[in-house]
Simulated scan of single mutants.
Amino acid sequence: MEGIRIRLFIVLLYFLSITVPSIYATDFNYCNKKKEYAVEVSGVVISPDPITKGKVTSFTISAITDKALSSGKVVIDVAYFGFHVYGQTGDLCAETSCPIPAGDFTISYSQLLPTYAPPGSYTLTLKIQDGDKNELTCIKFDFTIGFFFDSKNGLANSLSS
């Protein structure tokens, strides 16, 4: 569907549709474009797309580090039309195998979206901190939660673009 851009989100996602999940790369920006982060993000993939309420959504962050990492935190913040609606801090080693050697690595994360989450535009900010709480990277990306019609459950929805 050309012209429709649906972004995915790492945080609390479910799906009402029973279609086969697709995988799409998601555009992201660094939080501070002038800063040189110790961890360089090379890609964000969220699956499935489009996002709807009712099923698990997964995302994978591909990154590169110059130094081995033995511990750290993943800090997630979600904003809805600019207002903070969700935050979570988790153990980096719970999202990937530690120690992380220097070089390429991935962080995989899955979440459920509450069925009461409103449709619209969201922004997810993801920070990775080392064991001393030093910020290793910080990225942001936008996504949209739309509505779909699920005839089995009688839920009226319309795709947002």
Rank of each mutant, 00 (worst) to 15 (best):
T125W: 06
E36H: 13
T123A: 11
F15P: 13
G103M: 02
Y80I: 09
S22G: 08
F147C: 12
S160T: 05
G120S: 02
C98L: 01
C93V: 03
D66E: 14
I51Y: 08
Y122C: 08
I46E: 15
A25C: 00
G154C: 04
D104M: 00
V44E: 03
S121H: 13
P119S: 03
S58D: 12
S62W: 10
V74W: 00
T52C: 07
S62N: 15
T144W: 02
F9Q: 06
Y37M: 01
G82F: 01
Q111E: 08
I18Q: 12
E36F: 05
V11W: 13
P99L: 04
A25P: 03
Y116L: 09
E40D: 04
E2N: 09
V74N: 02
C138E: 01
T144F: 06
Y37S: 01
I6G: 07
N29K: 13
L16I: 08
A25Y: 09
Y30M: 06
V45C: 00
L159A: 12
K34E: 15
G3R: 13
V78L: 11
L136Y: 10
A63G: 07
K67N: 13
I18P: 01
K35R: 14
P48G: 14
S22R: 11
F105S: 07
A38T: 02
V78F: 02
Y37Q: 02
D49H: 06
K34C: 01
L16Q: 15
S42Y: 00
L8S: 14
V41L: 11
S160I: 12
Q129L: 15
F59G: 15
E36W: 01
L13W: 08
F149H: 09
V39P: 08
V45H: 09
F83V: 15
T125C: 08
D49C: 07
D150W: 04
K73F: 10
T96C: 06
F28P: 14
T123H: 02
